[in-house]
Design a binder for these strands. Structure first.
Lengths: 212, 212, 212, 212
DNA sequence: GATGAATGAGGGTTCATTCAT
DNA sequence: AATGAATGAACCCTCATTCAT
């Protein structure tokens, strides 16, 4: 028991665990806070017995942390696939802004990642630890963004003179703030719609290679 | 009871409340998570009776939220004062990066603000509400950064063609990511030391007016 | 807080703790087993809130263990006093047999001591540990019986050629078996009434000094 | 289901039940307390499925009680056989003291019998009930000791003027206390080695016939 | 007969809140 | 105003038992 780590391939996640993950994510999307999620709420939603939760996980915190990590992993996996299918960096960036604008649950996953990296709660400590595992590496934002940036550099679309790490920082930071602006009108007091082109141009202006 | 809002001028905060704020902030700086702070821990640290807490606040959440808001307010107030005393935008930006690098507790306050804006927990909902009050307006990051940016524009040091809100976004986003990089080595896998000049140049490159 | 050890002077035991001890002993006398006693049962009987139990004790096991130790201590304390007030060894032995025969709760305490010494349950481990404390020394059966035996030796009523420890063993073992015979008709298949004079004569025959 | 009583002839005990008994006894010998033994622990040790336990027993308590009764029965059976093979009472008593001194698991069984007779726990009530069954009669200590005492009387080695029941009490009580002294150094504060000859002489002195 | 995944009743413990002093 | 002993609702987790395979 307690063998589930949250880092399993989706295909290897037992059905009851999948139902539990679904319940946790649903609750989080509905605005419930991680700390307020009860085991009984999860299992009721998942349609399973309370004791069953403990056949797969050791503690309540593990259940929630695994659900969150699994979701973050899934989201960044999907994002990476989508991005890598795009033809050029402009399209990729555009897609990223679209996702932030239109896929609330993706932004939530992204923000959950940010919280995990910057908070001391037991949950986030746990999530961080799981995300440090080798199995998670490919799904880390730094790697997902890193891949398209390297691709851009290879294609000659992106400047060669900036370290890849700084370029990741650039994309990451603009996305995050853009997300915050959308999530709360109170942040920079600017309409998200009007902000978007500036963000796009800001990133492009800094990263894109000047030809000629 | 429950007359304290967390938005009082420091001078008007009763001594016992001040002691409670101090205890909460201390606990947070020690790495304790908001949700794990107990009323008894606060009052013990503050050196007052447990019942006394309820002479000033209605619930535990109010105590913590008020302490956090008060701290965020104090931090951004101090930051604003320091920034406004600087002669030019370069110095101001440099000072900001210094603060992020060296004043851990300032970054903590900054991150607490970010968490408050992007989380659904009861605490953060509460904190957000307080920060929406008129009394807090001057201390909002958007306003603190807005003031120095407007100042820069007036002095002719900063471009006039970008909306102030986007420029705030710029400064905010770079600072936040820089903070994250410092807080966790695992974020962009780049040494904070090496990142700093790029961040500085990135912001300057985008915002600073080109003369001639 | 958990400051109660079960070894306090009766006068220093807080009233609520006294009520809890009373409830535990009552339940044990009614035939309930230590392991089956619930915190809620104790506190309901004691007429106090469930949470109050944890103001004085750290765990349920501590509550029960302290109650038992306190009771054993009290019983052997009382027994010692009574015995020391008797004029000679014959009277003392007679009194002991009376107690076994007529004071069921005294036998229970005695048996609880025996169980504590010969069982591995968490409770008994705990009880044993408490009884090893210096504060308990005077109440240990070995000392209670030891005192009257030494007294008997001094008075010339008891043989000098047997080690005191063996004489304690003698008294202890006969009492214990006599108790068992009374507690269960199934043990030696002899009527307790008829057994008594033999036990009395057996002990006297072995320990009493033969004059001149 | 539930046909096992714990009183079966060893030869008639199904193999899986035998494995379960072995597991229970092992756990008890390792110092685990009866109440703390879990069904899953038993079946894991026994190398069988958890559900299988319920093919033979109705409840967990039955499993443990049957194992214990079976073990007590086996031990006293073995003890009886050994004793009856000895030539005289002195040898028999010596053998008994040897067993107490050197065969920890025999003492454990003996003490488990004593606990069963003097405790109200559900387990012990159950064990007592089983030991009251006709099939168990021959293995009761009263009968095992009774047989050698009667033999001694017949051989003229033991006094005729004491009732057999009191003589059983004598042997039983000395053995029990001797066992306690060995189990815990804290009981009479006398070294077991030094106690032994006194115990031997005590019993002999009281029971052995004076010739002449 | 044998299994072990699933269950859910039940109990220990925590801690925000109250209120008599 | 200040206190802290007392409270009990709420929640996590265990584990005996069941039952479909």
């Amino acid at each position: 028991m307690g063998r589930i780590t949250g880092l399993e391939e989706i295909g290897h996640v037992p059905p009851k665990v999948r139902q539990m993950y679904g319940a946790v994510i649903e609750l989080l999307e509905e605005g419930m806070d991680m700390e307020d999620i009860r085991v009984s709420t999860i299992t009721e939603r998942a349609g399973i017995g309370k004791g069953t939760a403990y056949e797969y996980f050791d503690t309540k915190d593990e259940i929630v942390a695994c659900a969150v990590v699994s979701q973050i992993r899934w989201m960044f996996g999907w994002l990476g696939e989508q991005l890598e299918a795009k033809a050029d960096f402009g399209e990729q960036l555009s897609f990223l802004l679209d996702v932030v604008e239109k896929k609330g649950h993706c932004s939530h996953s992204f923000l959950r990642f940010v919280h995990a990296m910057t908070s001391n709660s037991e949950f986030n400590r746990m999530i961080r630890e799981k995300m440090n595992a080798e199995e998670f590496a490919a799904y880390r934002p730094a790697n997902v963004f890193g891949r398209i940036l390297r691709q851009g550099v290879e294609r000659g679309a992106i400047r060669r003179d900036l370290p890849i790490e700084y370029m990741i920082h650039c994309v990451f930071s603009h996305l995050l703030s853009y997300m915050m602006e959308i999530a709360t009108k109170d942040c920079f007091r600017m309409d998200a719609q009007s902000l978007r082109p500036f963000v796009y141009r800001g990133i492009m202006g800094e990263l894109v290679a000047v030809h000629g």
